[in-house]
Simulated scan of single mutants.
Amino acid sequence: MTLNQLLDEGTERLSKAGVEEAALDARYLLLEAFHTDLTHFLIERNRELKAESQESVREFYRMLELRSARIPLQQITGSREFMGLNFFVNEHVLIPRQDTETLAEQVLMDYKGKYPRVLDLCTGSGCIAISLAKLGGFRSVVASDISAEALKVAQHNGEAILGKDKITFLLSDLFNAFRTDERFDVIVSNPPYIPTEVIRKLQPEVRDHEPMLALDGKEDGLYFYRRLAEESSKYLNPGGTVYFEIGYDQKEAVSKLLAEAGFTKIRSWCDAAWFDRVVSGVYEK
């Protein structure tokens, strides 16, 4: 058997299981199982596999079985790239999306050469907080989440990418665990924002295998934005700014919530697909 034949077999199995990008996922799993890259695969793909490759073959079949069960590719490989950095992920955290890079990129642009005190709420894997600390050189970053298991993942990523004790991690339901005198210059959040009823219609990879805690925005998807709009101003320095990731159809609703809570200079940005993805506001009082 050759690598090419293995890849064809894997693609067929994933396709029958209903995996949308069967060929691409099969290739990722093959490269992972054989600890190789695309260049070496292209060179070796038509050569007969050696006996010592059998362990890698078994690993490939094991991962195919998991992917056929619609377990997300990133949970199988245990990694996801975000902002050019490699993050460990598992079933306890939302898999970082490219859409979320829109938020991180805008904060980095707005605070280039500055050193704000940053708070990342609903941090999950820590991808936003860690990217800001690493790429922006922000020296004071706090990351919190309501999930203790998610915080373990975020702390692991923080130590792997930044080193130990570079970010403060805090178990908290939004602001509940914070002192009343704590203040930040920037508050960022990618909160749960999918309406409960919509979740059951999502792909099995998301609906069945990503944490409901990170997806469910309650009845209308705006539950956490209401809380964030109402509570964020108490923890901002004068002129502080909030940046929230939003669903593609939530710009007007979230902007209104911020305006009603006293925020001004409300702005929004689209992601690479031109969907509304980030809303920000400044609290000047």
Results as ranks from 00 to 15, higher is better:
Leu73Arg: 01
Val188Gln: 05
Asn86Ala: 12
Ser125His: 07
Gly281Gln: 00
Phe175Asn: 00
Phe263Thr: 02
Pro191Thr: 08
Glu219Ala: 14
Ser131Asn: 04
Met109Phe: 11
Ala229Ile: 04
Ala150Thr: 00
Ser53Ala: 10
Tyr248His: 09
Asp249Ala: 06
Asp173Leu: 05
Arg47Gln: 14
Val254Gly: 05
Ile43Pro: 01
Val278Pro: 00
Ile130Cys: 07
Pro204Thr: 13
Ser131Ile: 01
Glu219Gln: 13
Asp216His: 12
Glu245Leu: 03
Ser172Cys: 14
Cys127Thr: 05
Glu245Trp: 07
Ala33Cys: 07
Arg45Phe: 04
Thr180Val: 05
Gln203His: 12
Leu49Cys: 08
Phe169Thr: 00
Val282Gln: 05
Ser232Leu: 13
Arg13His: 03
Phe175Val: 04
Leu151Thr: 02
Leu49Val: 04
Pro72Trp: 06
Asp181Phe: 15
Pro191Phe: 04
Leu64Asn: 07
Tyr243Asn: 10
Glu149Ile: 05
Ala26Trp: 03
Val242Leu: 07
Val142Trp: 00
Pro238Asn: 11
Tyr28Gln: 06
Val198Asp: 01
His92Pro: 00
Asp110Phe: 07
Pro238Phe: 11
Asn46Tyr: 03
Gln98Phe: 09
Arg45Met: 11
Leu222Met: 14
Tyr28Arg: 08
Asn190Thr: 03
Ala259Pro: 02
Tyr235Gln: 00
Cys127Lys: 08
Gly113Asn: 11
Lys112Thr: 13
Glu48Val: 05
Leu213Arg: 12
Val93Asp: 05
Phe175Gly: 02
Glu59Tyr: 04
Cys127Met: 01
Lys251Ile: 12
Glu21Tyr: 10
Glu91Met: 10
Asp165Tyr: 09
Leu171Asp: 05
Ser131Cys: 09
Ser144Val: 04
Leu135Arg: 01
Ser53Cys: 01
Arg97Lys: 10
Asn4Leu: 10
Met83Phe: 06
Ser79Glu: 12
Leu222Tyr: 03
Glu105Phe: 00
Trp274His: 06
Ser15Thr: 00
His156Ala: 06
Glu284Arg: 12
Arg67Glu: 09
Val89Cys: 04
His35Val: 03
Ala150Arg: 00
Pro238Arg: 09
Thr123His: 07
Leu42Trp: 02
Thr36His: 06
Asp25Leu: 02
Gly217Arg: 15
Gly84Met: 03
Thr180Leu: 00
Glu219Ser: 08
Val242Gly: 12
Asp145His: 06
Glu210Asp: 15
Ser79Gly: 12
Cys127Ser: 15
Pro192Asn: 12
